[in-house]
């Protein structure tokens, strides 16, 4: 017997708390900007997107953010799926599927963050 589920759940909660902070900043910057004026100009215009992407800290922020969000979201989905009284075999399949999906999405998002950093540096 191991404490695997304790570990998984602990990180789900910790990731959730971290996300409240990270996603909160993200949401305030993008969707409350007209009220709070946290970012200069339209946060979705290419000029501001490209300007942000030049900072390495932005890429690091997005990669961290991506990892915590994927873990929190996919663990939550796993909770819901495993509570549907599925068989042990299906549960095993769901676990593997979610791990593979999570790793692939993380790899893709990381590539996008680094590639856009490179692209923004090249265009300066």
């Amino acid at each position: 017997m191991s404490i695997k589920n304790t570990k998984l759940w602990t990180w789900h909660v910790l990731a959730g708390l971290i996300l409240i902070f990270l996603l909160g900043l993200h949401m305030l910057g993008f969707h409350m900007n007209d009220v709070l004026h946290m970012v200069e100009g339209d946060p979705l215009d290419w000029s501001t997107v490209s300007e942000r992407a030049q900072a390495l800290s932005q890429a690091v922020f997005y990669i961290l953010f991506l990892g915590f969000a994927l873990y929190h979201g996919l663990y939550g989905l796993r909770n819901i799926l495993l509570e549907l009284n599925i068989s042990d075999g299906t549960a095993g399949f769901v676990n593997k599927l979610l791990v593979v999906a999570g790793v692939l999405l993380f790899a893709f998002g990381t590539w996008a963050a680094i590639a856009s950093w490179n692209l923004a540096k090249a265009t300066v």
Partner: peptide
């Protein structure tokens, strides 16, 4: 007990 309660059937299914 800590190990036993950590199982898939344990308190993690309570929301």
């Amino acid at each position: 007990r800590v190990k036993q309660l950590s199982g898939e059937q344990g308190p993690w299914r309570c929301h």
